[in-house]
Design a protein around this nucleic acid. Structure first.
Length: 311
DNA sequence: TAGCCGTGCCGTCAAACCTC
DNA sequence: GAGGTTTGACGGCACGGCTA
């Protein structure tokens, strides 16, 4: 196993165990089948070159069963337990409903509500957000977005970025998805159908996401479609206008690019949520530890009060 | 200083999950 | 059930710390 694979395997196990711990906290017990499958999972770590999938883990654990009927039942049990868990947001919101004051991952606001769907809403009543890079983003009623750099004090000195993100795009508009500077997500720019957005050659060499991660903001130009398109720019075409196999291939490529771009952004957002989720769990652990200490102290105090009576 | 190791982040794929 | 969303898994890269 490569070092990378080893690292990821450890991470995977860690998460697996963490999730089981959470479940056991909620249920009050760890199911036997989980423990079994976990041990099977751990066994594979020492002598195997490949990382077992959940199904493989279940299969490995299954071989240990003596009774066939039991193994079938356990297999399904394990499959249920090891099957995909609810999203981080769902888990966290479930937890937050149990524990008052526990932070919630906000449901993403739809665009008509005036907030960018990919900016973390931090349960602040005002429409001012801070990105992971420290930038402040304020969203005005009219959909105007203002951005200030972390260097400026608070939200003062905001610079207006003329952009509307409410309502439906105008008819025939081309939606251009644009990777923002941070991993906070994407913004959509509606461009009239007679024009296209072209990334400048300087930033074109590296993909936009690379520029985003390196901190170099990609720049774009709006051009007429008659001009030669640089590499990497894919024009959208209406499905009815496709005739030749080449056009079909281009359409397929365009769809694939779109899908990859969306998934790229989704993966970023998922990782952000995961981090937030882990942070929330850590803070919950801290709170519970404090509670636990207080209860122990209280118990000791009560013991002290009660003990003279028994003597 | 080169090599190794651990860690973090990213893009992609695939499958589970969700919504309509 | 189709299509979109979410997330686990994987490979790759970059970077910093450690050691011979």
């Amino acid at each position: 196993m490569s070092k990378c694979g080893r690292k990821k395997y450890i991470k995977t196990n860690l998460r697996q165990m963490t999730m089981e711990t959470i479940d056991s906290q909620q249920d009050g017990s760890i199911p036997d089948s989980v423990a079994e499958s976990k041990s099977a999972h751990m066994q594979t770590q020492t002598g195997q070159n490949s990382i077992p999938t959940l199904a493989q883990v279940a299969t490995i654990a299954e071989t240990d069963e003596s009774a066939e009927s039991e193994s079938v039942i356990d297999f399904h049990k394990r499959r249920e337990i090891l099957s995909r868990r609810p999203s981080y947001r769902k888990i966290l919101n479930d937890l937050s409903s149990d524990v008052p004051g526990f932070p919630k991952i906000e449901e993403e606001k739809s665009e008509e509500e005036g907030t960018s769907p990919n900016i973390a809403a931090m349960a602040v009543p005002t429409s001012i957000y801070q990105t992971s890079t420290g930038q402040y983003i304020a969203i005005a009623q009219g959909g105007t977005i203002q951005i200030s750099n972390p260097g400026s004090d608070g939200v003062q000195g905001l610079q207006a970025l003329t952009m509307t993100n409410s309502g439906a795009p105008p008819p025939g508009a081309t939606i251009v998805q644009y990777a923002a500077q941070s991993a906070d997500g994407t913004q959509q720019f509606f461009v009239p159908g007679s024009q296209v957005v072209v990334q400048d050659e300087e930033t074109e060499l590296a993909p936009s996401h690379m520029a985003a991660t390196t901190g170099d903001m990609p720049t774009y130009q709006i051009r007429a479609p008659t001009t030669a398109l640089p590499q990497g720019v894919v024009m959208a075409a209406s499905p009815g206008s496709l005739h030749s196999p080449q056009q079909l291939a281009e359409e397929a490529t365009r769809k694939r690019e779109l899908r990859l771009m969306k998934n790229r952004e989704a993966a970023k957002e998922c990782r952000r949520r995961k981090k937030e989720y882990v942070k929330c769990l850590e803070s919950r652990v801290a709170v519970l530890e404090v509670q636990n200490r207080k209860l122990i102290e209280e118990l000791e105090t009560l013991k002290d009060i009660c003990s003279p009576k028994t003597d």
